[in-house]
Amino acid sequence: MKKILAIVLALVLSLSLMAVAEKAGEGLTIGIVYKQSGNAYFQAGVDGFAKAAEELGFEFVHDGPEDSSNDGQERIIRNYIDMGVDVLCISANDAAGLVDVCNEARAQGIVVLSWDAKVDAEGRDLDVEPAGAKAIGVQQLESIAESIGYEGQLAIVSAGATAPNQNLWIGFIEEELKTNEKYSKIEYLGVVYGDDDYTKSYDVTKSLIDKYPDLKGLIVPTTNGGPAVAKCIMDEGKVGQIKMTGLTLAHDMAEYIKGGVADATFLWSPIDLGYVTAYVGVAMVNGEFKAEEGTTIDVPGFEGLEVIPSDDGGLILYLNKLFGFTAENVDDWIDIL
């Protein structure tokens, strides 16, 4: 009798072990620390973690200081270390300020990832970020090219003439226009600058439209310029003839996207970012993935993500996929971005 009982018990135990082993993140806890509590952007990020948690079976805790302070984040991180989390995913208020506490965590075998806002290279295992400069530029170009049928006049309405991010992206757009055959029928007119000012952006767009009656496409790689350009296209009665795209916030652009000024505008999605970060963290704890230059990881919907060296001498992983706001989905994002 005892033997049978023992066998049954052993069977049950092994079955339950097998059931546990089904999901990669079972039994793991992820501690998510973001810049500030009550911030819709980071709540969306946590939604991404939650989505991954459903698929991988890990548990997570999340918190941010109410005052966006560095010491508040340090306090939370220390609590999470005490609670015995396996992974820390941190969006840092101060890249340098958290290095010490992060290294304490790593000394205890905790995987430390930064997401959205980095922790300095010496305090993290890997930084997970939305997109590299090239991907940001090329994805906007591809979207507008599709909207205008890969031919016609195209111009860019940028922020300031010296804005470093915008110039980097525009550099990649121009290179792609020159080198990629499929854009050969697009006539590139150049860049005008709206200085991230609503009125100025509106005015330079208006003079562009007046000067080039056949203008078909506009790229606006700055969130402050987008609504002004869209309003101008609408006021000039050019909806349908001129299309735009760019990096914009959803709530700024919702009415224009639905009004047909743009087929899609872009920004990174915090949901995707949280989702991928969670997958990376779990894979690193399980030893399936190491953060070394050149290693790759497959996340559902994001295949072949590669670890590359970052500017600060550490390692970084880009999702390289911006999220497109379209007439169908933009309303869901109004409260978030």
């Binding site: 005052d67 302070s69 010491d71 340090e74 101060d94 340098a96 300020g97 958290l98 290095v99 010490d100």
Partner: peptide
């Protein structure tokens, strides 16, 4: 001690509250 505790950084919005 604050300066010493958080990785030797100083910010203008430190120690609010």
């Amino acid at each position: 001690f604050y300066v010493g505790s958080v990785s030797a950084t100083v910010r203008a919005d430190a120690m609010v509250g």
